[in-house]
């Protein structure tokens, strides 16, 4: 491979269908995951993504143990697994958001409890019941998504694309309402916006995104996919619309680049994408800094 130039390596990567599938899924997942980032960051819910991703890990462990026990293994195994993860993660998302509002147990404490608990139980299930020969490899790939995006079947890609499209469309149609509820919930409520409905919707969408993004970067790195695009564009842009559009573009570009770099280099996809996200964040911080200096 040494004699191939970087571009030739990229070109070669495109000739594999698993790379194309990974790129399609990656682009759609990163598009949908970046949209709600701005809202979550501004509502001080950055960590809810992290907590929920651990819940999704626990749910996945539970699902895979269940399948092994019931000896189910067919084409649809991934889809079923996803469905179980979705249900459990959504339930937790709703509960956590409620806890955040009622504040009987602080929102952050609730997130921490649920997230650590789910992580522990997930590993416990896998360790106790899994029949897999390579347990630590399994756990590692769930946590860091090391190869899962490259092993997607066509059906999984279609599922990812459809769910991402639903999330994106919902976001577009609820855009003004989400803005109003994020900027000023009391005002929105007072003028008759059903704020609790939209908060519920936000938590359901977040849960869907988490489950989707687990394929791309694994459960430990999902927060990066939600937060970095939003934080980066908030450094540079000044209107909610510009910030939202920029985070979507930022996220898609980073994921695309990440996959393209990781395939020929043989690096893990998830951590490569997140590393590029971090680099992008640094770049945007610098641009923001330059802008402020120039403004003075």
């Amino acid at each position: 491979m040494q004699d191939l130039s970087l571009w030739a390596q990229f070109a070669q990567a495109f000739s594999y269908s698993f790379v194309i599938r990974a790129l399609i899924a990656g682009v759609f997942i990163s598009l949908s995951s970046s949209l709600l980032g701005v809202t979550l960051v501004l509502k001080r819910f950055s960590f809810i993504g992290d907590g929920l991703s651990h819940v999704a890990f626990g749910a996945m462990a539970l699902a895979s143990v269940l399948f092994t026990a019931l000896k189910i293994s067919d084409e649809l195994e991934n889809a079923w697994e996803m469905a179980i993860m979705l249900v459990i993660t959504t339930l937790c998302a709703v509960l956590l958001l409620r806890a955040g509002q009622k504040a009987r147990m602080g929102g952050d404490a609730a997130v921490a409890t649920v997230s650590v608990g789910a992580l522990a139980f997930g590993y416990l299930f896998l360790n106790k019941f899994s029949t897999s020969g390579n347990l630590s490899g399994d756990v590692c790939s769930t946590l860091f998504g090391s190869t899962s995006i490259l092993t997607l079947k066509t059906f999984d890609v279609v599922l990812c694309v459809c769910m991402s499209l639903v999330v994106t469309l919902l976001f577009v149609f609820m855009y003004h309402k989400i803005f109003a509820v994020t900027f000023d919930e009391s005002f929105a409520r007072a003028t008759g916006v059903r704020a609790s409905l939209y908060n519920l919707l936000i938590s359901v969408i977040v849960a869907v995104i988490i489950v989707l993004a687990m394929n791309l970067v694994g459960s430990l790195l999902i927060s990066a996919l939600v937060i970095f695009p939003a934080l980066s564009s908030m450094r540079v842009f000044k209107s909610f619309r510009a910030v939202t559009i920029c985070s979507a573009v930022f996220s898609v570009v980073c994921s695309f680049t990440g996959i393209m770099v990781s395939v020929p280099q043989g690096t893990p996809v998830g951590s490569t994408i997140v590393a590029i996200d971090v680099a992008g964040f640094a770049l945007f911080c610098f641009i923001g800094f330059l802008r402020r200096v120039r403004a003075k």
Binding site: H176, F183, S239
Partner: peptide, 19 residues
């Protein structure tokens, strides 16, 4: 939340209609 909110004046004024 509002002190560090990236939103233009128009966006905020328009949000009065959402309800």
């Amino acid at each position: 939340v509002q002190r560090d909110f990236p939103a233009s004046v128009t966006e905020i004024v328009m949000s009065g209609f959402v309800g």
